[in-house]
Simulated scan of single mutants.
Amino acid sequence: MHRQNWDDLRFVLAVAETGSVSEAARALSVTHATVLRRVAAFEERHGEPVFLRSARGYSVLPDKLAVLEAAQEVENAVMAVDRLLTGSTAALKGPVRITSTDSLCQSVLPGIVQDISAAYPDLRLTLHSANRHLDFNRLAADITVRPAEQLEDTLIGIKAGVLTFALYGPTAAGRADEKWLTLEGPLSRSKPAEWMRHALRKSQFGVGSDSFMVQIGLIAAGAGQGFLPTFLADSNPGLSRKPDVAEISVPIWVASAADMAHTSKVKVVSEQLVDGIRRVLG
């Protein structure tokens, strides 16, 4: 594949993955105009459009899905080679990108990341807050700190602790028919959301959000009751734990792509993250 074709294809794949030119630009650290130009160049070179443009964003045209799937497989192989080459010779310096949920990024991880940065000043650590799972094959992250029952087959990781959820309501007395706050977006795949789908009726659901940090504010404001991580909610004076439902626990993993996990900088940062999480969460 010609180098220019490959470079343009990276931009096409980023838009296909995110469904948005702006999101693709952020993921690739380029401007919005650059993404538009490279996608247009790819489409012009091949004589036909790849995307359907709408108010909701960019979606791949059905007859182009197989082409992009094949291209993604090629990119995966190229990126794997790049990771192996750069990781095998890298010292403890350079960028290490860490992704985690907004709850952990705003409460548990900042101090731990700062400690790692102080101990290894040549590392350039980035803490990316995202409740969705990032694509490791696109080098969007080197390490993920993520609650999950188990890891995908493409990841290698260590259980660093346990994330415990409990039911909370506002400190002020709630109503007997208090609504349950729903978990939306990526949180809809969480273990508390799964419990709610099986245990509750639709008529019991009220306001929803895609963030436990937002959920805290909603519950404290009296919008209803809902599941929250205990390490966040137990110390909040606006919240009261409710004994109606048993706690739900999920392992917290520190993980990396299988072909990156044993590189020196990723291994050291991962070990430090595990130690820090165990120290903070007990």
Rank of each mutant, 00 (worst) to 15 (best):
H133C: 09
Y120P: 05
T263H: 13
A199F: 11
T31K: 09
P186E: 00
S107Q: 07
R37N: 14
K267M: 10
A246T: 09
T164F: 08
R189Y: 04
P243E: 08
A70P: 02
Q114G: 08
G169S: 09
F42D: 04
G111V: 05
E152P: 07
L36M: 12
M260H: 09
V74Y: 00
P243S: 10
A14Q: 05
D82N: 13
L104Q: 04
S59Q: 12
R53F: 09
G226W: 06
G111H: 09
E194D: 09
R124P: 03
T89H: 12
H32F: 15
K64F: 08
L167Q: 05
Q215V: 01
A66E: 14
Q225K: 15
V269Y: 02
K242Q: 13
R83S: 08
A176I: 02
T164C: 06
N5T: 14
R132H: 14
L134E: 09
K191R: 11
D259C: 11
R138G: 00
D259N: 15
A91W: 12
Q150S: 11
R83L: 13
L163V: 03
S59P: 04
T263I: 08
W253Y: 14
D234Q: 09
S54G: 14
A119S: 14
R197H: 12
A221P: 01
T126A: 10
T99D: 00
V60S: 04
I158C: 06
S264W: 07
A141H: 06
S88Q: 13
G208R: 04
I143L: 13
E17S: 11
R197T: 12
R132D: 13
P192E: 03
A140F: 11
S256M: 07
D177S: 00
